[in-house]
Simulated scan of single mutants.
Amino acid sequence: MYGRKACQLVKELTNSESGQLTTFNNDLFAQVIEECEAHFRDLQALFMKMQEEGTSNQTTKNPDHFGAFMHHLSLVRNKRCIMAYVYNRAEVVQNLGWAVELLLPEEIEEKLSNSEKEYFKNHLATLKSYMTDMDIDLAVDMVPPKDPYIKVRVLENMGNVALSDQEANLAMHAILFLRRTDAEQYISQGKMEELTV
């Protein structure tokens, strides 16, 4: 039956957890592409036959017309299923670009097709290029902060340090209010800790 294999691709998406990737189903994907090519060949053959007979698509409704219509609808449905499969996987891969610094973990990389690996690599390069050009780290705070200043405790003696808006003495065990952007680099290095109320 037409469209069954494409439907299996979409079912595979719905059966997996949201935001999680299953292994790219190359075999089923290739079978759907082959089915699309067969529909296209049959559609072209029916159009050629109708053209040779001199029948009009608009006025004559014969078995060839309905057959062509059926192949066209099957082709469109398969295309929509393939696009949904690829688009949803691309969204997950794109979100990985925000979570992963440089390389994908091996267990995730095994699940990707070659084109998805290339897409991830290009997406990550684009993100890094943009952040470098704009001199901003977009991956720092995925949730907007309520306050631009945070309370921190200094864990290592760093002496006088020039921050974006002031110079501060970062002595060990000092408790300070610093701009979030200034403190995050030291927090990530383990030289400070954020104090929460």
Rank of each mutant, 00 (worst) to 15 (best):
G54L: 05
G54V: 04
T55L: 11
T55S: 14
T55N: 10
N57V: 15
N57G: 15
N57H: 12
N57A: 15
T59Y: 09
T59A: 12
T60P: 01
T60V: 10
T60D: 06
K61M: 08
N62C: 12
D64R: 05
G67E: 14
G67T: 13
G67L: 14
A68C: 03
F69Q: 15
M70L: 15
H71G: 09
H72E: 15
H72R: 15
H72D: 11
L73F: 08
S74D: 05
S74W: 02
L75N: 10
R77S: 15
N78T: 12
N78I: 10
K79V: 13
K79I: 14
K79Y: 13
R80T: 08
R80P: 01
C81P: 04
C81Y: 12
C81D: 13
I82D: 08
M83N: 09
A84L: 14
A84M: 13
V86M: 11
V86A: 11
N88D: 09
N88I: 06
N88K: 11
N88C: 13
R89A: 07
A90F: 02
E91G: 09
V93T: 06
Q94K: 15
Q94L: 15
Q94C: 14
N95E: 07
N95C: 08
L96E: 03
L96T: 05
G97C: 13
G97F: 03
W98Y: 08
A99P: 03
A99N: 12
A99F: 10
V100Q: 05
V100W: 02
V100R: 03
V100H: 03
L102H: 07
L102F: 04
L103I: 02
L104W: 00
L104C: 02
P105T: 02
E107M: 06
I108A: 09
I108D: 04
K111P: 02
K111C: 07
K111V: 06
L112Q: 01
L112R: 02
L112M: 05
S113F: 09
S115N: 11
E116S: 12
E116P: 04
K117V: 13
F120T: 06
K121Q: 12
N122G: 09
N122P: 00
N122W: 04
H123D: 04
H123P: 00
L124H: 02
A125M: 11
T126E: 11
T126H: 12
T126Y: 10
L127R: 06
Y130A: 14
Y130W: 08
M131G: 06
M131K: 07
M131I: 03
T132M: 05
D135H: 06
I136K: 01
D137P: 00
L138M: 04
L138T: 01
L138A: 06
L138Y: 01
V140D: 05
P145H: 07
D147N: 13
P148W: 01
Y149P: 00
I150F: 00
I150N: 00
K151C: 11
K151I: 05
K151A: 07
R153Y: 02
R153H: 05
R153W: 03
V154I: 10
V154A: 04
L155N: 06
L155R: 07
N157L: 13
N157C: 12
